[in-house]
Amino acid sequence: MADRDPVERVWALVEKIGICMLVSRDGDDLRARPMAAFFERDQNVIYFLTDAQSHKDEEIVRDQHVVLAFADTGSQTYLSLTGTAEVSNDRDLVRKLWSTPAKAWWDSPDDPSIRVLKIVPKDAQYWDSPGTVVSYVKMAAAAISSARPAMGENVKVDL
């Protein structure tokens, strides 16, 4: 795992996992909700379709700083991105991002309440483990020997 380019690994994880928890600030509190990510690697941007009436849009207008938390529990791989967000009413982009999951929330890409949430990641941190079974074996061995297990790679990446 260590021989991979860390930036490319971040984007590969975004693509592989796809769904993340979007965390925004609501006054002094933090709020998280699941979102389906669309990304443009060459532009260093992640997009989400959102609703104009949602609280997250209001929160982002007040504070543009967000966290995206991706988790692939099957392979014990995790990714956290920090960045800034903005809400857009770009109708061409809405149509470009329209997909089957969006149909659960809106009837068509022409629904006037759909907005695009654009995230520009600043940095990322990922944790790559050797997999669930190997991780459990390493943890069990560490518990018996009182040594810390080698659980894989943890990398912080500027984007």
Rank of each mutant, 00 (worst) to 15 (best):
G152E: 08
W98Y: 03
P121I: 04
Q125W: 01
V66N: 11
D26I: 05
T132D: 07
A85S: 12
T132Q: 12
S129M: 02
K103W: 06
I114C: 07
G27K: 13
V157G: 06
V66E: 08
T84G: 10
G152N: 05
L68P: 00
K138C: 01
P121K: 04
P149K: 00
L30D: 10
K156T: 11
P112V: 06
P149A: 00
A102C: 12
P112C: 06
R91Q: 10
T100E: 10
L68N: 01
R148L: 12
D42H: 09
K118D: 01
E40G: 09
L30W: 14
T50L: 08
Q53L: 07
R31C: 09
D90H: 13
A36K: 05
K16A: 14
A102H: 09
L49G: 02
V23A: 15
E40Q: 15
V133M: 07
R25H: 08
A140G: 10
D42L: 02
F48Q: 01
D107T: 13
S129Y: 01
G27F: 03
P34M: 05
K16M: 08
T132S: 12
V66H: 12
R115N: 09
D28M: 05
R25G: 08
P130M: 02
Y136C: 07
M139E: 08
N154W: 11
M21A: 14
P109H: 12
L68Y: 04
T82V: 11
R148N: 13
D90W: 09
V134T: 11
G74N: 13
D110C: 08
S99A: 14
D158A: 11
V134E: 14
P6H: 08
V45H: 13
V14F: 01
D51R: 08
I119C: 06
L49W: 04
E59F: 05
F38N: 14
W98H: 04
L79Y: 00
Q53E: 12
L93C: 10
K122F: 03
P109N: 12
S129Q: 02
D158T: 08
D3F: 05
V87I: 15
H55K: 15
D72N: 03
A102D: 14
I114M: 08
P34Y: 04
V155T: 14
S108K: 15
R115H: 10
D29W: 11
R115I: 02
W98E: 09
L117K: 06
D123W: 13
S80P: 00
M139K: 11
L49R: 02
V133Q: 04
V45P: 14
D42T: 07
A102F: 09
R95Q: 13
R9F: 05
Q43V: 03
R62H: 10
K56Q: 13
A52G: 12
V14E: 11
E8L: 07
A140H: 01
W127I: 08
D3W: 05
F38R: 15
P149R: 00
D92Q: 13
T82F: 02
M21H: 11
L13P: 01
M21F: 11
S88R: 15
S129R: 00
Y47V: 02
F48I: 01
T84C: 09
S99I: 04
D51P: 05
R4W: 06
L79M: 03
Y47P: 07
